[in-house]
Amino acid sequence: MVTQQDSPYNWGMVVDVDRCTGCQACVIACQAENNVPLNTENLYKEQRTYSWIRVERYWEGEFPDVKARFIPIMCQHCGNAPCEPVCPVFATYHNNEGLNVQVYNRCVGTRYCAIGCPYNVRFFNYWEPVWPEALRNQLNPDVTIRSRGIMEKCSFCIQRIRRAERVARRDDRLVADGEIQTACTQACPTNALTFGNLKDPDSKVSRMSKDRRAYKLLDEKIGTDPNVIYLARVEEKAEAVHG
């Protein structure tokens, strides 16, 4: 058995839905950082496209008084993850840093985890991923290319976490708040996404997660205890203006 040492970290993310404009910059950044295959037209027709983070769009109100709402959804890194116990080969498990880890070479592709996941953020590689010749040199060497038959999902950019932790250990200190930026938080033009250590009470994510607006997706209903915290939209008081 792998023994789990205590860790000073519990990585988490805060998503301020109020700031999200649905621009999809995070989706593109994630795709480039994590060697996510291109969503070509053919794959789209086969309904085999995916992205580790997606921006859900929904409408509020009736035409013409209608508003577009956006909510970015990625792996919630649940503390009580429904995807983990169903894996027959322990390819997905929870590590001591609060990450829901997917061990690609351990995965045998049963897809049980994807069925278990209530957020629909686990994706199966139905095909061997291919990139156009021009894009081959932009692949990230720090991220495994997932071959056909393997499950994959948001890793909170674990390659960046590992790098920062290594540097911190070399310098004999802890990873500072804000030192790690995932690809999506880095790309977000409105700072709707914030990444950090939830175990550190002074970190930005910890402080934000105590906000009145904080909620976790589906947590109340099914108790998945996600490490991603959402901040609800601020409703304009001007209800009367268009009411």
Binding site: V2, Q4, Y93, V101, V103, R106, V143, T144, I158, R162
Partner: peptide, 10 residues
């Protein structure tokens, strides 16, 4: 040293 799978596999 860490033996967590995600030390070496990601």
């Amino acid at each position: 040293a860490p033996v967590d799978c995600s030390t070496c596999h990601f």
